[in-house]
Structures are given as structure tokens and as C-alpha cells.
Design a protein around this nucleic acid. Structure first.
Lengths: 211, 211
DNA sequence: TGCCAGGTATACAGATCGGTCTACTTCTGT
DNA sequence: ACAGAAGTAGACCGATCTGTATACCTGGCA
């Protein structure tokens, strides 16, 4: 399922904020920070705890990252990168736009089941970052914009005239399912969203065949 | 648009966590806390700031609420209560299940436009509260369960057999729109969700008329 | 050999955190 | 007249916060 060049799925998101070279100590710190930030929230986790969990001294943390804010940036950029890397082969394996869209929902379901019981890390981080000029803000909105573009580009061959609207609807179903999963509103939220996406696509394909 | 007794729309949500009597000072404190918590996040706001913004001493805060955690509980319970009070007359004014569902999306749009640029306060609070046993957790999940029940009960007369599925789909569209609004994914998210909900309901009504 | 990046260990600084305390005042209802 | 609730003013506590500093160790590389 090749995509338009406007949405290069293998690209890293972090063109904006500077990335930090990951020495072994930095890598362990980032892993610990990621786990703690996601589980407990960003403001609830101190740098001392990150250092202790990573088996690293605080000096190493500040030699590598410079500030806690930068650790937050790396945390989000890393998760964004890993999500896109997780999604990419599944998109490649899809042979139709229809299957491509469903592959996104299935990938999200598997991603959530594997390691994200508390919902989308970007949405959660957004709740703690009020400053629009914070470097993490660009990563958060960047991933959401990328997902919207992905859905829209995927459905464009199916429905060129209504691709924007359809892409937005799929985006709402997807985001809603992530929230529903994180807040345990009802079980199988991603699967339900996938089903509704399939219905939606079937309707579009049907109206295209008969119209 | 009368509702089944299972979802009494005028009831307060906070049967669980104890509520605090709102003296004038406590009311001002709650107003300030609500604004600060929503804008900056819960962990980012200290009790000293709340007291200063409310023009109240810290002693008054602790005389009334006892702990910051309790202020958080009151904040969420209060927002939940105000949202339901905001929604209730709009539901009453709707004369069909179809209009009732659309009224929810319209109420959310107006609610968001008026005072919630950063999305759903429950979702945002959830991002900062990891402990399931925290008294605020019940309020958060309680509101989401109530909304799901509301959607489901609203569509039951339209499609008794598929009310659960339809209610869940509306819930996903609604939650997705709240997130899309808060993260500024695209403009008019609530309106778009409303449109898609209308399409969904039209399809159900159509299949009921012709089937 | 010597250099230096990457690391440990630990102490420290200044600020802020949630929470408590004493002392005094002001209003209201009986 | 008096009690009690609600409040101000402000000092204080121990803990924790982000961030910095000094001193030392280790492996690889020119």
C-alpha cells in the first residue's frame, strides 16, 4: 500500500526539536523515563527517580539531556518514532486502501494491548503541557496531523471528492477508540472502531460502484 | 426527550466521593482551582497558587477541603455536575431520539467553545491520575459510563437490537471530537462529529423504514 | 603514554511542594 | 452577651523539586 510522498511513513517525526545522541546510559535513562512518564504522568516523576530506575547518576542525566524538559521531548519523539516504525510494515502489507485503513486500527489495537493500557501518550502529555511554545507541543500535534494526513491519503483513491471528510471521520473514530481504551469505557474499543471504519468504507465503495 | 430511569439526567454524579460544603471562601477557591487545574494541569498547580488566586489563605483551603486531593475531587465533581446541568435542558428540548443525540454533540460544541479549549477535563485529569483507587478516578470513569449509557438509551427506541453497538459508535465519535478539539487536529471537530452522527442515525432510520 | 568521553558517587543549592500551627478578627444567630 | 463558624496573616515543617558542583574511575584510541 504505497503512500503519496506527502506522508512518508518511514520518516521520523522529530525534524523540529533537537535529538540527543543516545549513549548506553542515556538509552537506559530514556527507557526508564518513558515507562515512568507514561505510567504516572510527567509532572509526577522526578529526575531522581528516573536516575535511580535507570541505574544512572543524575549527573549523567544532565550531561546527556541538559534538562528534564529535554527528556520529555526525547520521550515523546521516541514513542512517536517507535509507533510509526510499528505501523509501517503493516501498511506495506496492506494491498488496498480499504485494508490499509483497517491495518491502522489493528496496529493500534495491538500496540495498546502490548504496552499502552493508559491510552495515547501524546494526548496524556498534552494534558500536562499548557505552553504552546514548549518543544514537546510540536511533537504531539505533529503526530496527530500526520495521522490525519495518513487516513486522508489512504482513502483518497477510494473517494477523491470526500477524502477530507472521510479522513476526519476515521480520525475521530480512531482517537475516540484510544481514549475509550485508556479510560476503559468499554472493552474492545479499537476492534469496535475498526468495524465501524469497515462499514464506513463499505458504504463509500458501494456508493462508488453503484453511482 | 424523556429518558429511561436508568439514566436520570438531572442527578448529580458524585454519589461516591464525599462533597464539601461550599462556604464563600471555599467557592472562590474551587473556582480558582478549577481554572488553574484545567489550564495548567493538576500537578503543575500548587495549593499556594490556588489560595493566592482565590484571595484566600491556605488555612481556609485546608479547613474546607482537608487536602489537595479533595480539591481535585471537588473540581472534577463540580465540572461533571455543571456539564450535566448544561446538557439537561437541551435534552429536554429535543423531541425525538435523533434530535436528542444531535443535541449532545451541539451541547459539547457550545461547551467547548465557551470554556474548554484544552479538551475534556476528565480525560486530562485521567492522564495525571494513575491510581485506580484515587477518589477522583470514580468520577472520571463515572462520567464516561454515564455518557455511554446516555447515547445507548437515546438510540434504543430507534434500533433496539443494535442500540449497544450504535451507542458505542456515537461514544467514539464524541470522545474523538473532544480530543480533536483539544489538540486542534482540525477545526470544527464537534460539528463534523455531529454530521457523522446524523448520517449514522439516518442510515439506521432508513433501514428500519425499508426493512 | 596520555587524552578524553562516559561514567559513578555524593554533596549541595535554592525553590517549591503539601500541610500544620498560633494568634487574631468578623459576622451571625440565639 | 456570648458562642461558634468563617475568615485573615504569616510563620513554620520536612520532603521533594530541578539543577550544579567536586572528585574520582574506566576503557578505547591516537
Amino acid at each position: 500500500m504505497p503512500l503519496p510522498s506527502s506522508a512518508p511513513i518511514t520518516s521520523t517525526a522529530s525534524n523540529g526539536p533537537r535529538r540527543v545522541p543516545l549513549t548506553p546510559g542515556a538509552r537506559r535513562a530514556l527507557e526508564a523515563a518513558g515507562r515512568l512518564f507514561y505510567d504516572r504522568g510527567i509532572h509526577a516523576v522526578g529526575v531522581d527517580l528516573i536516575a535511580a530506575e535507570a541505574g544512572v547518576t543524575k549527573k549523567t542525566l544532565y550531561d546527556r539531556f541538559g534538562s528534564k524538559d529535554q527528556i520529555v521531548v526525547e520521550y515523546l519523539a521516541d514513542r512517536d518514532e517507535r509507533w510509526r516504525a510499528f505501523l509501517a510494515p503493516r501498511l506495506d502489507a496492506a494491498h488496498t486502501p480499504h485494508d490499509g485503513v483497517l491495518a491502522v486500527f489493528e496496529a493500534s489495537r495491538d500496540w495498546m494491548d502490548a504496552s499502552s493500557p493508559r491510552g495515547c501518550s501524546m494526548v496524556n502529555a498534552h494534558a500536562e503541557i499548557d505552553d504552546t511554545s514548549h518543544p514537546a507541543y510540536a511533537i504531539i500535534t505533529g503526530q496527530k496531523q500526520w495521522m490525519l494526513t495518513l487516513f486522508t491519503d489512504l482513502v483518497r483513491p477510494l473517494a477523491p471528492a470526500s477524502a477530507d471528510s472521510l479522513g476526519r471521520t476515521l480520525m475521530l473514530l480512531h482517537e475516540g477508540a484510544l481514549v475509550a481504551h485508556g479510560l476503559r469505557i468499554f472493552p474492545g474499543a479499537l476492534d469496535h472502531a475498526r468495524e465501524q471504519a469497515a462499514v464506513l468504507l463499505a458504504t463509500v465503495e458501494d456508493s462508488r460502484a453503484t453511482g
